[in-house]
């Protein structure tokens, strides 16, 4: 059992009526990434979604704990922000990326990233305004300035930057390359009204771009964005 051959062969021969795996014939070519795949869209099962519903609040709280308690235990803004972003990934995988995208608007993501950078720079520049050096915490006009200045930098600065940028990278990578003539005008409005496959899906090149995937991939992309709208949040039918 050293190669992948035995399994593939068994796949090809082992299914008598093609009834297994719902309405599809078994795979015979050994490919695992099916670009020929048809049938009902994939919604997460009723086991995974409740588990994510249970785990996500804990994980989110834990990410905040790691961020806020960075001064006393391992952790800090970077790790905590990454955990918070990972919670969003988890929700997106369970409930569909389009639904998550509508729930977590672009404004929120951008506000997190930009706000974090501004807060960090602000905390650094306040001492400069008061006649000190950049990030000279002692001059901050708050009680226990060094400790709370640092906490502010970690929590409101680094944590929010990392969380926002990671969520943004996730969403933008999930959307892929836009070939609609540079800075896509239609895409932005398209997403605002929450109608994923509209303009974007009609343009065959919009999912392809430089990488130029085979037609099957684009098809799958369309099916998926059709399916993962609000309907996907209502609970998998199976």
């Amino acid at each position: 059992m050293s190669g992948s051959d035995p399994d593939v062969d068994a796949d090809a021969e082992g299914d008598p009526g093609g009834g297994f795996g719902r309405d599809r014939p078994p795979r015979s070519d050994g490919r695992l990434d099916s670009d020929r795949r048809q049938g009902t869209p994939y919604t997460e099962s009723q086991v995974i979604m409740p588990t994510v519903k249970i785990v996500a609040p804990f994980a989110f709280t834990y990410g905040l704990f790691v961020t806020f308690h960075g001064g006393g235990s391992p952790g800090g803004g970077f790790q905590g922000g990454a955990i918070v972003a990972a919670v969003v990934f988890m929700i997106a995988f369970a409930f569909g990326i389009e639904a998550t995208r509508q729930w977590l608007a672009n404004t929120v993501v951008v506000a997190l990233a930009v706000g974090g950078a501004l807060v960090f720079a602000g905390i650094g520049l306040v001492p400069v305004a008061l006649g000190g050096a950049f990030l000279q915490y002692e001059l901050l006009p708050i009680p226990d300035p060094v400790k709370y200045g640092m906490e502010g930098v970690e929590i409101l600065g680094i944590g929010t930057i990392v969380a926002g940028v990671l969520m943004g990278l996730f969403f933008v990578l999930a959307k892929g390359f836009s070939d609609a003539g540079g800075f896509a005008d239609a895409d932005a409005f398209d997403d605002e009204v929450g109608d994923g496959p509209g303009v974007n899906g009609d343009d065959p090149a919009s999912d392809g771009g430089a990488a130029a995937p085979p037609p099957g991939v684009t098809d799958d992309g369309r099916t998926g964005s059709d399916a993962s709208g609000p309907a996907a949040t209502d609970g998998g039918e199976r």
Binding site: D15, G21, S45, I48
Partner: peptide
């Protein structure tokens, strides 16, 4: 167990007999 379920389900969707 949920992760194992997800993986087994993915295998089923792939059509692994």
């Amino acid at each position: 167990p949920t992760a194992a379920h997800a993986i087994a389900r993915a295998a089923f969707e792939e059509g692994i007999v």
